[in-house]
Simulated assay, not measured.
Amino acid sequence: MNKVPMTVAGEAALREELEQLKKVDRPRISAAIADAREHGDLKENAEYHAAREQQSFAEGRIMEIEGKLAGAQVIDVTQITKTGKVIFGTTVDLVNIDNDETVTYRIVGEDEADVKNNLISVGSPIARALIGKEEGDVVVVRAPGGEIEYEIDQVHHI
């Protein structure tokens, strides 16, 4: 099985969701199914069918999370020697060479990516262009809108 990189925060979020599903949602759904069964004919019982659908979704999500955690390679960037190089988990300040705009991204695992919060997937075009580069390097990102040149201003290992 291939290991999938994940940050410490990403692992914690998945474990928290798993805990919620197993200890809160699963018992609530089981109680809803039991309650719906008491109402009689299951063929025409909308509450029963809705609860079973919720149960199916929750059990599927539990299996998905457990699979992701089993295949995760948790990387704690704070434990890695600070070299100024862009690696998985680092936060990078970039300066757009064309318009001098500054943007900050953190390189995270596929499941943790959230562009609105400047968390980019390790497999994204920007991250692939940045990995292995150092502060002061200029990188060309081939994005759907065309090529963008960035200078790596600063690399943070936080």
Results as ranks from 00 to 15, higher is better:
P5K: 07
P5Y: 03
P5N: 08
P5S: 01
P5Q: 10
M6G: 08
M6V: 06
M6K: 09
M6I: 05
T7N: 12
V8R: 09
V8M: 03
V8C: 06
V8F: 05
V8I: 12
A9D: 15
A9R: 13
A9I: 08
G10K: 04
G10Y: 06
G10P: 12
G10W: 01
G10A: 07
E11H: 01
E11W: 03
E11M: 03
A12S: 09
A12L: 02
A12H: 11
A12Y: 09
A13L: 04
A13P: 11
A13N: 14
L14G: 09
R15C: 05
R15F: 02
R15Y: 09
R15G: 06
R15T: 02
E16L: 11
E16V: 01
E16A: 10
E16F: 00
E17T: 14
L18Q: 05
L18Y: 05
L18I: 00
L18A: 09
E19M: 10
E19F: 01
Q20D: 14
Q20K: 13
L21P: 15
L21E: 15
L21K: 14
L21G: 14
K22L: 04
K22C: 02
K22A: 00
K22S: 08
K22H: 07
K23V: 14
D25Y: 12
D25F: 05
R26A: 11
P27R: 13
P27Q: 07
P27L: 00
P27C: 02
P27S: 05
R28N: 10
R28Y: 14
R28A: 06
I29Y: 01
I29W: 03
I29K: 06
I29A: 10
S30M: 13
S30G: 02
S30L: 04
S30H: 06
A31W: 08
A31Q: 13
A31Y: 05
A31I: 04
A32I: 00
A32M: 04
I33M: 07
I33S: 04
I33L: 08
A34G: 01
A34T: 10
A34Y: 07
A34N: 15
D35V: 00
D35I: 00
D35C: 00
A36W: 06
A36H: 12
A36L: 04
R37A: 00
E38I: 07
E38S: 11
E38C: 01
H39S: 05
H39D: 10
H39M: 07
G40H: 05
G40Y: 02
G40D: 12
